[in-house]
Design a protein around this nucleic acid. Structure first.
Length: 1023
RNA sequence: GCGGAUGUGGUGGAAUUGGUAGACACGCCAGACUUAGGAUCUGGUGCCGUGAGGUGUGUGGGUUCGAGUCCCUCCAUCCGUACCA
């Protein structure tokens, strides 16, 4: 029987499914082990070869743990709410649920093809009402809780209400919005609406008016981590700041705990660092500066400034440099700006604010170098010296961070320094030895000067002293600031979990009858009134009496926004433990038994999104006593991205400008101009006449330059003609032959490409020796034997449908089989490294599996001998048992594959077909290549799946050699080797080595200065 | 700018605690079998040199009997992040 992966793989996949081989037991004497992959969003593009990389590694790990006697929980599901299905619904009218199910089926079929050992009975889908019922329930827990700073945990809001009833809020120390003081009698006298409004200031899930990232094209708000470079991460649409009423989560209450928790979990350092940066803790002080009364508009210019009660609060990490403050800067959006600006400066300030507003976030970010600002005309008073400090505004100060205002210390902060230089503001030195000519001194080492009571202190001491003094004077206090903002929780979209809230008198109330099911709508677009798509639903009111959704107008309106993508993924790991429970989100027993995730695998791109939110929800649920642990995963592994190789084609674009003349109307202009074609490895320069309207492509092996500005004239009119190139992606299917290596030249099928791209059919494809046009090749020279190929340029980038560089695992499986795919993806290199997909080595892996199979077979017959194994055979086996075990435990999957190959090569050389060797070897290999292992296991006579076998124990004694081949080096350079008994002692080795004839010859009679013998390893002779 | 990571043959990569650098695989070269080879098998393959030998893990230095591995310097690439006061 020959090795036919396509046959045996299907059979075993069916066997596993039918027998529920990978079912995890809810109670077991075996120790539990939880191996989790980040579940995918089921996109329409299906899986590409990059997705399974992490899944394969986890699968190996899970199978290994089973063989090691663990009860393994290894589930998979779908993050099935999301934008693409909804965008598709908007375009086609197909309900997102239908698209989603179709996509899930594709994903499932693809995953089944690879032979994963998932327990599919535990599958979860976030868009399933039986699942999102509990997502909504958790939301209500967050709505019904506040964060008590004294206890440093979340508590039920009912405890807060009790406190309000008896003592008002004077003793309340909660993480909340600014709330005026009130007494118990105040509280008790208020009506329900007022009370509820106050409570909203305390709830962890709360409604707030806040600036959000609004994306008009997507018609929704985005979280900070969904915005990259001022555009949406998904789709790349512009994002603007907009003030909106929004559901938010007080994740900032957890900032410190999220930071502290990182110390105790085994996650990659880079990922932890990203979370630390995102949370952005900085230690410093809040300081208040009183604003000196600006000259009143009505008073004469010679009157003294009046005192005003206005204060500017700033956050600083360097309170020690307080005496170096020479101005203050407010963000242009700061609320005090309008109040303090003097009449003389009003025009300038308003002009500056208008200009700053007009600049998009993106421009502002791209243009960090330009210094701009304006003087308000107002002054603050220095709290210690009483000196007037001019107040400026500048867009280098961010409204969203700290207080939106800074005390500017140009001697100690580079941005303040640049601002001061630009506007000619003094730069007083406060640290000894600062050279402030070229730049600020941002060092935290140094001794204070010119600083009154701080003089002579180190920076560290001065910070403490300054804070102490400020606190004594009640003008400031020590403070820890976080960069992290509260997370916006609502999306103005259809395809997400409905937020279980209704509004009575404009006040939100919870809907406790769950699930609150997503209503049907006619259209998935926002309503004409600008409401989210749920505004299109006809039955979307709530009757609190009957606890039913009723027709609009017959009850109270229900919230129209839905939850963001991260809601469902913030707790799914819990649901897998108890996926069908209808009484609770997950039973206590299940959580006690399984505990948190032992091994969590996924992409590093989720560092500041999902992985922060899931930690937040976990800590919150722990606080309320719903779960027994406060981190979701003990260990986290980031698999590297498998990139695609895109085929780039250069297309020339002509920018035609003739004042306002339409560019098509070129009549009368001289219509032919010369293109200059430079060849990269010849001196020849060719001039090539083209029409300005022709579409031009150029092959990657030639270099073309065109005059950057060609002016065509017609009478007084001028046509300016400016060529630039863009790189387009060509589908990899349109290459004349597939790319085998990155360096290889790949020829494009010009005709097919043109049909596919629907570009100008007269397009010219310029090659080295001529050009293609209308299906014909025109040579530049007479010689018609020269190369006519048009080459693409390879480029490594993310694998994506839109880049046409996607490789589908199904294609690989069809050709080589799933076991080959699994081994090859592991063989590619370390799991965590990013690497471009190439199939260069896949033949080697495929050959290896055939060789492995052939150990058991002589042609068509299965032949395994019952003979006793030899020492060499046992050594090959046990070296492999040991190495693979160590490799899996340190997640070095690529090196195991090499070890398998070494072992098979050795057994092959030894002509070993002995059961005593092959049987345990099959168990070891079954983690990586389960199909072939199952097949051979059953041929060996086993009736039960190899899943229930035991990982073979390795025996060190088989690895011990009788003799050691000592490398003998002179001054560290290996010269020869001598075979010696392994048992020989250090001194004996030295004696024998020095007596060796060749060693003597090399020593030329001289005595060695020193001889180092490392028993079993090397001998080094120093001469 | 800051933070993290990585630099090893023609290529992907190995070398886990400082101990024969280049395992394993691809590619390439030679040979065998074959009607054929993009099948299979055997041998070779870091670089320079006919050879003995020399040389070699991004650069320069250091520690050590011995450094890909440890320390310092610089360079390059990738990823993340960015006016965070």
């Amino acid at each position: 029987m020959h090795y036919y992966p396509e046959k045996i793989e299907k059979e075993w996949q069916q066997y596993w499914a039918k027998n529920k081989t990978f079912k995890a037991e809810d109670s077991s004497k075996k120790p539990p082990f939880y191996v989790l992959d980040m579940f995918p969003y089921p996109s329409g593009a299906g899986l590409h070869v990059g997705h399974p990389l992490g899944y394969i590694a986890s699968d190996i790990y899970a199978r290994y743990k089973r063989l090691k006697g663990f009860n393994v929980l290894h589930p998979m599901g779908y993050d099935s709410f999301g934008l693409p299905a909804e965008q598709y619904a908007i375009q086609t009218g197909t309900h997102p649920a239908i698209t989603t199910v179709a996509n899930i089926n594709t994903f499932r079929r693809q995953m089944d093809n690879i032979g994963f050992s998932f327990d599919w009975d535990r599958e979860v889908r976030t868009s399933d009402p039986s699942y999102y019922k509990w997502t909504q329930w958790i939301f209500l827990q967050l709505f019904d809780a506040c964060y008590c700073k004294n206890a440093d945990k979340a508590i039920p809001i009912s405890q807060l209400v009790d406190e309000f009833k008896t003592n008002g809020n004077k003793d309340v120390n909660a993480h909340c919005d600014e709330t005026p003081l009130f007494s118990a009698s105040d509280w008790n006298s208020w009506d329900e609406a007022k009370q509820q409004t106050i409570l909203l200031n305390y709830r962890i899930a709360y409604l707030s008016e806040a600036y959000v990232n609004w994306c008009p094209q997507l018609g929704t708000v985005l979280a900070n981590d969904e915005v990259k470079d001022g555009v949406s991460e998904r789709g790349g649409y512009p994002v603007e700041r907009k003030l909106m009423k929004q559901w938010s989560m007080r994740i900032t209450a957890y900032s410190q705990r999220l930071l502290d928790g990182l110390e105790d979990i085994d996650w990659s350092e880079s990922l932890k660092e990203q979370q630390r940066n995102w949370i952005g803790r900085s230690v410093g002080a809040m300081v208040r500066f009183e604003v000196k009364g600006q000259r009143s508009e009505h008073s004469g210019s010679n009157l003294k400034p009046q005192s005003s009660n206005l204060e500017i609060e700033v956050f600083t990490t360097r309170p020690d440099t307080i005496f170096g403050v020479s101005f203050m800067t407010l963000a242009p959006e700061h609320e005090l700006v309008a109040k303090i600006t003097t009449a003389e400066q009003k025009a300038e300030i308003e002009a500056y604010i208008a200009k700053a507003k007009a600049r998009s976030d993106r421009e502002r970010m791209a243009d960090v170098k330009t210094i701009s600002g304006a003087f308000t005309g107002a002054y603050a008073e220095h709290p210690f010296t009483g000196a007037p400090i001019p107040i400026w505004i500048g867009d280098y100060v961010l409204a969203g961070y700290g207080t939106g205002a800074v005390m500017a210390v140009p001697s100690g902060d580079q941005r303040d320094w640049s601002f001061a230089k630009h506007f000619g503001i003094p730069i007083p030195a406060v640290i000894e030895g600062s050279d402030l000519e070229k730049e600020a001194n941002e060092s935290k080492d140094g001794i204070l000067k010119n600083s009154d009571f701080l003089n002579g202190m180190t920076v560290k001491d001065a910070i403490k002293a300054a804070i102490a003094k400020m606190e004594a004077m009640k003008i400031g206090e020590g403070k820890i600031n976080y960069r992290q903002r509260d997370a916006v929780f609502g999306r103005q979209r259809y395809w997400g979990e409905p937020i279980p809230i209704y509004y009575k008198d404009g006040v939100p109330y919870p809907i406790n009858k769950l699930p609150l099911q997503l209503p049907e709508v006619e259209k998935y677009l926002p309503t004409e009134a600008g409401d989210p798509p749920l505004g299109n639903a006809e039955n979307w009111n709530w009757n609190p009496e009957t606890e039913e959704v009723v027709a609009n107008g017959e009850g109270y309106p229900i919230e129209l926004s839905t939850m963001p993508g991260w809601a469902g993924s913030s707790w799914y790991y819990l649901r897998y433990m108890d996926p069908t429970n209808d009484e609770e989100f997950c039973s206590k027993e299940a959580m006690e038994y399984w505990g948190n995730v032992n091994y969590y695998a996924g992409g590093a791109e989720h560092a500041t999104g999902h992985l922060l939110y899931v930690r937040f929800w976990t800590k919150f649920l722990k606080d309320l006593g719903h779960i027994p642990f406060d981190e979701p995963a003990k260990k986290l592994v980031n698999q590297g991205m498998i990139q695609g190789v895109s085929e780039k084609v250069n297309r020339w674009i002509f920018e035609l400008r003739a004042g306002s003349a339409p560019i098509e109307n070129l009549t009368g202009f001289k219509q032919e101009i010369n293109l200059v074609l430079f060849e990269s490895n010849k001196d020849g320069v060719k001039f090539f006449p083209i029409k300005p309207t022709t579409t031009i492509f150029s092959s990657s092996d030639i270099r073309i330059e065109m005059n950057t500005k060609v002016v065509l004239k017609k009478g007084s009119e001028e046509l300016v003609y400016r060529p630039t190139t863009v790189s387009l992606n060509a589908p990899i299917s349109q290459l004349a032959s597939p790319r085998l290596s990155f360096d290889q030249k790949c020829e494009l099928n010009v005709e097919e490409y043109l049909t596919w791209s629907r570009d100008d059919e007269n397009a010219i494809f310029i090659c080295r020796n001529g050009y293609w046009q209308n299906g014909k090749f025109h040579y530049f020279e007479q010689d018609t034997t020269l190369d006519k190929a048009f080459y693409t340029q390879p480029e490594v980038e993310k694998m994506s449908k839109s880049k046409w560089n996607v490789v589908n695992p199904d294609d690989i499986i069809e050709r080589y089989g799933a076991d080959t795919l699994r081994l090859y993806e592991m063989f590619l290199g370390p799991l965590e490294d990013a690497k471009p997909w190439n199939t260069n080595g896949i033949e080697g892996v495929s050959r290896f599996l055939k060789k492995f199979w052939n150990l058991f077979h002589d042609g068509d017959t299965f032949v395994v001998s019952e003979e006793e194994p030899t020492k060499k055979e046992l050594k090959a086996l046990h070296a492999t048992i040991k190495k693979v075990q160590e490799d899996i435990e340190r997640l070095s999957f690529n090196t195991s594959v090499s070890q398998f190959m070494i072992c098979v090569n050795e057994l092959n050389d030894l002509k070993c077909n002995k059961r005593a060797i092959l049987e345990p070897f099959t168990v070891v290999i079954s983690t990586y290549a389960p199909h072939i292992a199952e097949e051979l296991w059953s041929q060996l006579g086993h009736s039960e799946s190899i899943t229930f076998a035991t990982y073979p124990a390795f025996n060190e004694s088989f690895l011990v050699e009788d003799s050691v081949n000592y490398p003998i080096s002179f001054n560290g350079k290996t010269r020869l080797s001598i075979e010696l008994p392994a048992s020989m002692g250090k001194d004996e080795v030295e004696k024998v080595v020095l007596a060796n004839a060749e060693v003597q010859e090399r020593l030329e009679g001289a005595a060695p200065k020193k001889v180092i013998v490392v028993p079993g390893r090397i001998v080094n002779i120093v001469v």
